[in-house]
Structure formats: structure tokens, C-alpha cells
Design a protein around this nucleic acid. Structure first.
Length: 420
RNA sequence: GGAGGCUUCGCCUAGUCUGGUCUAUGGCGCCCGCCUGCUAAGCGGGUUUGGGGCUUACACCCCAUCCCGGGUUCAAAUCCCGGAGCCUCCGCCA
């Protein structure tokens, strides 16, 4: 949620952000009113409670003859306090609701507009010159690496098996990602993939994108769509020591997405699936360091993309295409030869203090005051990368060249040969 | 799944039976100061978190906070109900 103090001091900034996202400015007025109302309710309840304290003490000290009158007075006050607290609770709830309805304030510099209004920051690497292009599924089947038919038989559409070199490739890639992260000082973490509602909500995934999330009704738990969620929850309701710099974690987990509303989109192969594996970077840092940390995360993503030798471009996502928690987002999109276009392989978001405020994650600043930290996340490798690796490194006979940096993780193997 | 125990302001802990004097005790740690040639020891003070008020600021004041949520009461760390987490034992099972 956004900072109420900032809102009070500079409501125009929040309005401008709402405009850039294409979201309602009216929500800002609703929130301001709710904030004002709650403040007056709290003040009223506070002073009544103070009065009641004195009154209770008076009962104790009263002499037997004055006691009945004093007691009656105390009873009346108790009734008033109860009423005031009820009103305060309602005002609290209304404020929170209004606060949750507003997305994070967009960082200055992010392009305005929607999904198609991204800005291309750079293009890196050479697209492969291919006479004839096989798509990743055809290659995957030739190599005995991907089996979507049996995936569908066993679990339904958008499920798949990674078999043989497919399974090995994924493990190699994720292990390489973890190694890179550990070298960079990240703490590797294997996370839970089922989380409580408060954690899922705290990370901002139960807002407009709640259709994307699997929920286990019987247990009131959610399946995570990214290890960002359990990594953000890791330090929930804690005060962190950031005096040594950002706290960085690299989460390895399976990820689950319902892909509601994407019917008919990317139905072939494993580009868009309900379950995949991912190594995700997650940083907790001081708010003033967040923009720089965001660039560092982007640099680590590009380092990993270079290791698997993929041509890609970096885009600055437009305000209207940011998740509700993000203030700024950069995606790296790899060239997909079979589609003749770039597709997202990584995404790094600066959530500023938005998630931390919901999750109660703070640190002590220079004045020893506890303030919400900034949180950031970024992709280091996912199952989807296999699509780009197979297609970009394919050879005319259907074999696939193994990127040098992955070869040590595959017993020195330099090429995947067709098995049929 | 069944039975029992536990949860207090960084850590440990007193307080809960018997409601008000709890504005929560003590120790450890940490911070500031004094003392000392330096260090240790010693001495004095400070040290939950959040919201609000007042201030240039420091200070100070008010409210809430004893795992969480309800309830009883003029009044709850304390009594009652519900929940969570941890521990022990039993049962079942990878």
C-alpha cells in the first residue's frame, strides 16, 4: 500500500501516477477522505479512553457512600468508549480498503500508457541465421526433451513433462543460475510453494490479478506463482538490519499460474504453462538504494542471458502494464525464431516500500527510526528459457548446441542429438 | 487424529492461582555518560513497537500494545471462549 504521509503531502503525485496507469483518480479522493475520517475517530476514541482510565481509578478510591455515583459515571463512560471504538474499527477497515485499492506510485521516468507503450532500452546479441526454423516443441520432441501430450493426458492442457535432456537442461540451467546468484552474494533458498492469504495478499497478488492464483479451498492456502511471494513473506513482521547493505535471496521453486483469460494464447509447447520452475532474485534494501538495486538486478539478469547466449532486448514497461506492487519494471525479452518476435524471459520489479508496508517489514534508518524497506525482485532463469535456448541454438539436422556456460552442468555435453 | 505443557517490552525471566498498588520485576546484551594512564572492573542513566499531539529541534504529553481475536467487568498480562505457534507423549503413515 502507498504511504499515507506522502499522499497527504503530495496528493497530486499520486493522482498523476493513477493517470499514468490508466486507473481511477477518484480513488485518491476516497482514500484522503477515509484517512481524515479515521484520524478524527482515533482522536475521539483516545480521549475517551483517557477519561475512562481516570474514572476507573476513581471507583477504586471512592468512599462507600460516593461509590454508587462514581460507578455509574464509569459505566456510562464504558458505554461511550465501546461505541467510539466500534466507529474507529469501521473507519480503520474503510481506510485499509481504500488504501489497498490504490496501486503503487509509478516511478518517475517510467513510460506512460499500456501494454504496447513500452520503451526499448537496448537490443543485445545477434539473431541466428536459420534457413528453416523448427519451433521448440518440434525440437523438444526430436530430442526426447518435452512431452506435452502426456502432460495433457495426466494433468490437462498447459501441462508437460520434461524428459531426458529436457530435464537435464532445466536442472543445469537452474543450477547455473543459483551458482551465479551465490557468487554475487545471494543466499540460496528453497521456498514453500503454498502460502497463507496474508502473504499472498501482502505481495499484491490478490488484487486485479487474483484470477491468476490457484487457491486450495480446503486449507485456505494459495499456490505461489513465483517464489517472490514466500521470499517477501520470509521477513514478514520483522525489523531487518540493513547496515551491511541489501539482503539478497535467490529462491528456487516451482511456480503455479492459472492462466485464466489466456485461452487460445500460446497453446503450443511450453511457452505458457500452469506449472514451471524458476530461480528468482529478491532484495530487501533501503528505499534510497532501491533504484540502484533495480539496475543491479537487471545487470544480473543480463549476465545470465549472456551465459546461455541468447539474443534479447530490454524494455522499460509502461505504467499501465505494471503489476499493482511495482513502481518500475524492466523486462528482458529473448528472440524467438519460430515466432519472429521477442518474448519475455525475465522481469524485474522495484516495489519500493509498497509490499513491505503491507507485510510489516522494516529496518532502522539513520535516525534509528523504523521505516518500511524497499523490496525488489527479478527473474534469473525459468522453464521458459528452454524455449529460447532450443530455438536459437538449433542446427539444420535438429540437434541443439549447448551454450558453453551450461556444458559443465551437463557433464561436458556440447550438443543434444535427436533421438528419433 | 488424541492428551498435556508452554508463549511477558532484543534474549532469559518475575508477575497469572487471589482482577485495581503492573506506569510490567530482575539478569544478560546493547547505547550514553562518569571514573580510570589504557583495558577490565565499578558507578549513574537509557533501551518494546505502533499511532497521534506539541516543538526549529531536543524534550515532553496522550492512546494502544504482555502470541492473535472475541467476551465478562467501572477496571484484564491476570478471569472466560475461540484461534495460532512451539514442545512432550500416544496413535497413524511416507
Amino acid at each position: 500500500m502507498i504511504d499515507l504521509r506522502l499522499l497527504r503531502e503530495n496528493p497530486e503525485l499520486v493522482r498523476a501516477s493513477q493517470r499514468a496507469r490508466g486507473e481511477s483518480e477518484h480513488l485518491v479522493d476516497v482514500l484522503l477522505a477515509a484517512d481524515e475520517r479515521r484520524r478524527s475517530m482515533v482522536a475521539a476514541a483516545d480521549s475517551l479512553r483517557a477519561e475512562q482510565k481516570g474514572s476507573s481509578a476513581a471507583v477504586k478510591q471512592a468512599s462507600p457512600e460516593e461509590r454508587p455515583a462514581v460507578l455509574q459515571c464509569a459505566r456510562d463512560l464504558a458505554t461511550k468508549v465501546k461505541a467510539a471504538e466500534g466507529e474507529q474499527a469501521q473507519a480503520d477497515a474503510e481506510l485499509r480498503q481504500a488504501q489497498l485499492a490504490i496501486s503503487n506510485v509509478v516511478q518517475e521516468g517510467a513510460p506512460a500508457g499500456g501494454e504496447d507503450d513500452y520503451l526499448v532500452l537496448r537490443e543485445v546479441g545477434d539473431k541466428p541465421a536459420l534457413d528453416s526454423v523448427r519451433d521448440h516443441l518440434e525440437l523438444g520432441e526430436l530430442l526426447g526433451a518435452i512431452d506435452t501430450e502426456r502432460g495433457a493426458k495426466v494433468s490437462g492442457a498447459r501441462f508437460y513433462y520434461l524428459t531426458g535432456v529436457g530435464a537435464l537442461l532445466q536442472l543445469a540451467m537452474l543450477q547455473a543460475a543459483i551458482d551465479q546468484a551465490v557468487s554475487a552474494g545471494f543466499t540460496p533458498v528453497i521456498t514453500p510453494t503454498l502460502v497463507k492469504p496474508e502473504v499472498m495478499n501482502g505481495t499484491g497478488y490478490l488484487g486485479s490479478h487474483s484470477d491468476e492464483v490457484y487457491r486450495l479451498e480446503a486449507d485456505d492456502l494459495y499456490l505461489v506463482g513465483t517464489s517472490e511471494v514466500p521470499l517477501a513473506g520470509f521477513h514478514m513482521n520483522e525489523i531487518l538490519d540493513l547496515s551491511g547493505g541489501p539482503k539478497r535471496y535467490a529462491g528456487w521453486s516451482s511456480c503455479y499460474r492459472r492462466e485464466a483469460g489466456s485461452y487460445g494464447k500460446d497453446t503450443r509447447g511450453i511457452l505458457r504453462v500452469h506449472q514451471f520452475d524458476k530461480v528468482e532474485m529478491f532484495s530487501y534494501c533501503a528505499p534510497e538504494d532501491a533504484a540502484a538495486e533495480h539496475q543491479r538486478l537487471l545487470a544480473w539478469e543480463e549476465e545470465m542471458l549472456a551465459k546461455v547466449e541468447l539474443p534479447y532486448r530490454v524494455i522499460d514497461t509502461a505504467a499501465g502494464d505494471l503489476g499493482s506492487s511495482a513502481a518500475r519494471k524492466f523486462d528482458c525479452e529473448a528472440w524467438i525464431p519460430s515466432q519472429g518476435r521477442y518474448r519475455e524471459l525475465t522481469s524485474t520489479s522495484n516495489c519500493t516500500q509498497f509490499q513491505a508496508r503491507r507485510l510489516g517489514i522494516r529496518y532502522r534508518d539513520g535516525n534509528n527510526k523504523s521505516v518500511p524497506v524497499a523490496t525488489l525482485n527479478g527473474t534469473l532463469a525459468t522453464t521458459r528459457w528452454i524455449v529460447a535456448i532450443l530455438e536459437n541454438h538449433q542446427q539444420p539436422d535438429g540437434s541443439v548446441r549447448v551454450p558453453k556456460a551450461l556444458q559443465p552442468y551437463l557433464g561436458g555435453r556440447e550438443v543434444f542429438e535427436p533421438v528419433r
